[in-house]
Design a protein around this nucleic acid. Structure first.
Lengths: 337, 337
DNA sequence: ATCCTCCGTGTAATCGATTCCACGAGAGGT
DNA sequence: ACCTCTCGTGGAATCGATTACACGGAGGAT
């Protein structure tokens, strides 16, 4: 591999000068600059990012640890994060935790070992010692989507409270009264918050949320299936099932189908997180859409602010309800006048 | 940040000894080893991967450049690649090319600058000079899914020829005669191969593949929509549309829906690449499934073989047809006796 | 007792960059 | 004509690891 020394030799200058040209330092003569550039060209020289990082103590790399790449929501988030980071001259290394705390720790550790400049995390659990320690030690860090309470780290997320309220109003308007939820792990903020928002919205309509209508899922399709089967086996099954993420909604659809039931005639279904496929499922699924792209961009902005010494800002964006047909059609008597 | 020097000081030994302990070099006394380990523990020392890479000239990192992360097929591929790499002690940096040659080049360049140990590529186009140059220069490289002809690089991919033949037989058995295809970019191997396989399979049944039934797509949903609209506007529209990837199938479904037509009654739909969502679309979509996980594992195996000096192997795995309902139901008279 | 090995350890070179500091040349002021 | 200042440049230290080499001491062989 050709190094800066080779370039220096070829151009007849010192390595210092080559470095100066490459970093567009002002005090280099036009002549030297030209010779260096020519040498770079003929040798096909590319600076070694590893060496540069060692010296400058910055990698211009961001780490992104997400809970599950196979979840389209996170895929899209990852994509927008990469895009935003690239625009600011940063690369992104993605670590997929697969909803497993041990894997999450593995990635955080590797990322830290690689001396990434900052970390974007969507924690799978309440927070491993490793991550808390890193945050305390001053690693620039931003939580995205999910967060951990009691840590002084900016959070970029969507607030679904209002959208959940809209959803419940929609369901109530459709005549549904017995509403169930497939919750995410209580250790995740999104897991507990969505249940809370749901419960609160129900209360506003004077509806209860009994224990048997709260199913404990883990944001994976299989758990959605399992919980839904339990709902359906109830003496009095729910009118509608609200899944706290899109994968569990998929599992719920499976379970409903397996029972030979139809959506929405026999039971309604709604999901948190909207994805392109929901338009094409049978039936199209009513969902709460997060501004994923904006979330990714805001997270990168906050992290880079933090890295470059500017005060980072926590950001909360509203989610919104997208009504489709999976909870029943608007009939004349309950449509808005 | 605590460095190896701090550990050496704390343990009362030289940095060489610390390094030896950390790399489990045999000649270290039990006493010294214990003291070093203790020091590592109390200081919370973690070796700087950047420095180590500079010295050893290996990063234990693989680069993966894929055409489109949002495509579930590639997401799954990326996931299996990461998994397999992790098992072998490698990290993976993913570069998303978004089907854009310039972005692909950007990622290849950054990855090379970071001195990744090897590169896994699914080229968006016929091959940029940059990539060919890297291959020639000896960068360990393996093509996955798509490849570039005339380059001495192992290829790990699925062969869909047989599955396409099965598909056409299935369609023919259902009475469909006018079959159309939404092709991928001709510059990609998967783009041209799938059309070829389709054409050949049609020939076996004495069916033609006229120009007007070959639509040019780019593996993105929008192009599937556009091409399908054109098909539907034909004086004699096709009986079935076969999309060369799942995203274009999604677009096709959109277009068909927008025309107010029903699948499969008015027109059939099939896709290359099977994904979980196809089970839940309306109707469930008949597709050709690739052994994605196995593909990812084989690709990593080949690349790591190449990196570690063993002869790498090209691998071709069979794809298989998964029949669902999007091309029509099996009716009594054409069901297998 | 002497010599040779081998083992554990430390010193220092090295990887490829960046950057501080010193130095010489030329310009400009007096 | 001399001093000063600026500018372009090179030498060398530095980042944090790994590793070749040297060295001293212990143990075994003769």
């Amino acid at each position: 591999m050709v190094s800066i020394k080779d370039v220096a030799a070829e151009a007849g200058v010192s390595v210092a000068t080559v470095s100066r040209v490459l970093n567009s330092h002002p005090s280099v003569s036009p002549d030297a600059r030209a010779r260096v550039l020519a040498a770079v060209e003929t040798l096909g020289y590319r600076p070694n990012a590893v060496a540069r990082s060692l010296r400058t103590d910055q990698t211009r790399t961001l780490g992104l640890v997400i809970s599950d790449v196979l979840n389209p929501y996170f895929t899209e988030l990852a994509r927008s994060v990469e895009e935003a980071a690239r625009a600011l001259g940063y690369s992104v290394i993605i670590g997929n935790a697969d909803e497993r705390p041990d894997l999450q720790d593995h990635h955080v550790r590797t990322l830290l070992d690689r001396r990434i400049d900052g970390l974007l995390v969507s924690p799978t659990d309440g927070g491993s010692p490793l991550m808390l320690e890193a945050a305390r030690a001053g690693t620039p860090m931003v939580f995205v989507d999910r967060w951990i309470a009691g840590v002084d780290v900016p959070v970029v997320r969507a607030d679904g409270r209002e959208a959940v309220r809209d959803l419940v109003r929609h369901l109530h308007g459709l005549g549904h009264r017995r509403l169930a939820i497939i919750a995410g792990p209580a250790a995740t903020t999104t897991g507990s918050e969505r249940v809370e928002a749901f419960r609160e919205a129900l209360r506003e309509h004077g509806l209860p949320l009994p224990e048997e209508l709260i199913g404990q899922g883990d944001f994976q399709a299989a758990s959605g299936r399992r919980v839904t089967e339990a709902f359906l086996a109830l003496p009095e099954p729910p009118d509608v099932v609200f899944a706290a993420d899109n994968l569990m909604a998929l599992g719920a659809l499976d379970a409903i189908r397996a029972r030979g039931l139809r959506v929405p005639q026999d039971i309604g279904l709604a999901a948190f997180d909207d994805i392109p496929w929901f338009v094409h499922t049978d039936p199209p699924i009513t969902a709460i859409a997060q501004p994923t792209g904006e979330l990714g961009r805001a997270a990168v902005r906050a992290l880079v602010d933090r890295i470059e010494g500017r005060p980072p800002e926590s950001v909360t964006l509203p989610a919104r309800l997208v009504v489709r047909r999976s909870c029943g059609e608007q009939s004349p008597e309950n449509s808005p006048a």
